[in-house]
Computed example of a mutant assay.
Amino acid sequence: MNKNKPFIIGIAGGSGSGKTFFLNSFLHHFKNDEVTLVSQDDYYFPAGEMTQEENKLYNFDLPSTIDNEQFLQDIKRLVKGEVVYKKEYNFNNPLAVVKILEVNPAPIVIVEGLFILHFKEIAALLDYRIFVEAEEAVALQRRIKRDGMERGYAEDGVLYKWHNHVVPAYKEFLLPYKGTADKVVINNLDTPEDIIRITEEISKDLRPRYCKQS
């Protein structure tokens, strides 16, 4: 076993599960050089510029929309201790300034995304799997709020995507892997204290084993 190999944590969760808050809370327990993050959201194949109606109908919730080969290669490069440079995905927003992300290797690598357990070669690299979930009604309200505030989507478009894309994809490509998770986090209540407590427990266990203590 390679003692220098990073510990790889997979964090999966459906839309509106509160995965982003969980992730941010988890990262907060580590120093910058102790942990690095690779997000599936930065590996969408470019969909080209679309009208609002085309965007509504385009299904982003399919594994085929993700460049999983590049995703896999970049994770492997981090495992080898190499720096990864990646264009940030802008969700087809022509006004967005595209940033180049610099992802540095670290003792703990977090791989985050909807399909990380579905992509078999990526799943095989994970040392620890966390599955974040919420009741469907709770998740939908979070999605409506996020897409309205952050992306300017109309509610009817959000509902169309939810019923036709989001829920079917969740049931087919994520939910079947719930039983393979090392930890399932139920996140129905928007109470940060619960999530902070859970992430603190996990980080307290991992930091002494994988991060050099100063």
Rank of each mutant, 00 (worst) to 15 (best):
I66V: 15
I122T: 08
L37W: 09
N92A: 12
N32I: 02
F71R: 03
F115G: 01
R77Q: 12
F91M: 08
E82M: 07
E121H: 12
N104C: 08
E82R: 01
L95E: 14
L37P: 08
V35K: 04
L125Y: 13
Y58S: 05
I130C: 05
V84Q: 11
P63W: 13
A47V: 06
D61I: 07
L117Q: 03
N55W: 08
D33I: 10
V103R: 04
I66E: 00
K86C: 07
F45H: 15
N32E: 11
Y43P: 03
I122P: 00
N93M: 09
H118W: 04
K56I: 09
Q73K: 05
F115E: 10
S64M: 04
L62A: 07
N92V: 03
I116H: 10
V97N: 12
L62D: 14
L126E: 14
G48N: 08
F115P: 00
E82P: 05
E69C: 01
N93S: 13
D127E: 12
L62T: 09
N32V: 01
E121S: 12
Q70D: 06
Q52S: 10
D74A: 11
E54P: 03
F45W: 11
Q73I: 00
P94E: 15
Y58M: 05
F131D: 04
D61P: 05
I110S: 02
L126T: 08
E88I: 01
F60R: 10
R129I: 09
K80R: 12
D74F: 08
I75A: 04
V109I: 14
A96M: 13
K120G: 09
L62C: 01
F119Q: 02
K86I: 13
P46L: 13
K99T: 05
G113T: 02
K80S: 15
K120D: 14
G81C: 03
K87A: 10
I110L: 15
T65V: 09
K87S: 13
F131I: 00
E82V: 00
R129C: 00
K99F: 09
